[in-house]
Design a protein around this nucleic acid. Structure first.
Lengths: 186, 186
DNA sequence: AAAATAATTTAACAAATGATAAAAAATGAA
DNA sequence: TTCATTTTTTATCATTTGTTAAATTATTTT
């Protein structure tokens, strides 16, 4: 997916503003397994996924995967981007990826100069917020089996491209529990 | 908490932009128990809490409380505000409240006219996003007892002002489970 | 203060999920 | 292909959380 399309998915910009953004974007590729962003570091870039699949996870006793990103989606260390503080997430590439890279510093400059880009940034955060809030609510009143069915319905492609251990973690259960749930559904 | 302080909590605006926002704000009060926002309706206002306490909940088999707002916080139907669609949340006042009211329509106009206000709106969504994401992650790798202790540490005031049934729902457990957890901690 | 109502706790049992270990299946490397 | 490694499933038992009902405590109304 090309950068113009990706930017439009968030919010349609006037040509001039869109060009200003695109002029700050460069292309870069990494292989499967690469760790793109590391926790406890201030990250100075954000990325848009041209091709490939990634996951965001935090390290605790075990790894907790809390987000998947595929073509058209934005990779960001929220804390770095918003508060200039070390982030909590690691980003691992689950497939070979082609990415668009944008320096946070340049984006900040554009936010202050161009009202359309500022609103583009606002829309991005607002849409992510709704998605996250809906997941939180879903987690709160659905059991693991219902959340699995919901994921199958809403994001069937993830089940084909992501190994089940990560899916289980994303659903907030152990891999063994997920296996059991899948067995019961047969 | 006065409106000037509340706006600054999100992002410090130049005087002129701040005044433009404040000029669109009016004061209004409602008693405890009032339902301020209703689910499945497009809401045309957002509110800032001058004084009081509210909760956001969705109705399923039972009620699921997923957010509390107190002095200085912003009350918003996310779907209405972001996508002009009926929202999923109800907002109930848990105490008598004094609120600042702002028409979404006017705010949208300001977003398009004033780059500072657009960035103020961006910061608001970004900060809410981080809070929501952190709660989602916490829900994913902590058990109920750990989440209760975390809430006690981070928001002790809620435990004094909110009845336990709502706290339990917010933690994603039943009231009976919360009672059991509290008994074990004694 | 007494009565009525609402909120919280306790108890007993059921259901869901976790932990550990082992087996089976799938994938990747030589 | 064969071997080694990784992923997924299955089985067993432990722990956590849910459900229901009743008892207790707190709050509100009369």
């Amino acid at each position: 997916m090309d950068i113009s399309k990706i930017l439009d998915l968030i919010y349609e910009l006037p040509d001039q503003s869109k060009l200003a953004l695109q002029n700050n974007v460069s292309e870069i590729a990494f292989p499967k397994g690469h760790i793109l962003l590391k926790a406890n570091k201030i990250e100075s870039n954000i990325y848009f996924i041209k091709k490939g699949l990634v996951r965001a996870y935090v390290e605790r006793d075990n790894e907790v995967t809390f987000w998947f990103g595929k073509e058209g989606e934005t990779i960001i260390s929220m804390k770095s981007y918003v508060e200039d503080q070390p982030g909590y997430e690691n980003i691992e590439l689950l497939e070979d990826c082609e990415l668009y890279e944008l320096k946070t510093e340049n984006l900040r400059k554009l936010f202050n100069e161009d009202v359309h880009i500022a609103n583009w940034g606002r829309k991005f955060a607002e849409k992510e917020l709704i998605k996250t809030e809906e997941r939180l609510i879903s987690k709160q009143f659905k059991n693991a089996s219902e959340r699995y069915l919901e994921l199958m319905k809403d994001h069937p492609v993830l089940l084909q491209r992501v190994q089940l251990g990560h899916i289980a973690s994303y659903l907030g259960i152990t891999q063994v529990s997920l296996s059991r749930i899948r067995a019961e559904l047969k």
